[in-house]
Design a protein around this nucleic acid. Sequence first.
DNA 1: CATCTGACCTAGT
DNA 2: AACTAGGCCAGAT
Length: 116
Amino acid sequence: MSPVSDPLRPADFASDVFEVVRVVPKGRVTTYGAVANCLGAKKASRRVGWVLNKSFSVAPAVPAHRVVNRLGQLTGAMHFPKDRPMASMLEAEGVQVQDATVVDFKALFWDPMTEL
DNA sequence: CATCTGACCTAGT
DNA sequence: AACTAGGCCAGAT
C-alpha cells in the first residue's frame, strides 16, 4: 500500500515525515534515516531533520522526540522548546535516556519500513 | 549573488 | 576497520 505521497514533492515529503513520525508507537523510537528510507529517499535524512524543525507548529502534534539519529543520540534535543525537553518526553514514555543517548536503543528502535 | 551550514546516512577508498 | 567524500535541499550569512 502507499500511505505516502511522492517524495519528489517537497511539500509531500514534509507531510510524509510528519505522518510516519506520528505512527511511531509510544515508548519506541525511530531514526531520521529510517524515516527517509521509508519515504524512498534514504540519502535525504538531513531533510528529515530540517522538516521536523517545523513540526512544533503543526497539528496534530508530532512526537519528534521519538526521532533520534542512528546511534540513538538525541542530537535534536537542543532544538526543542525549553519547556519540553526531548529527554524528559522520552523518559515520560518509559524510554531511558542517559547522556543524551537512548538506553537500549536497539531494542526500542521502531523501523517504519519493516513495521509498516 | 556565492558559500556554508545543518535534528544525517551510505558508499567508496 | 578507520577515514573521506558525496548526496539531499532550504535557510542563513
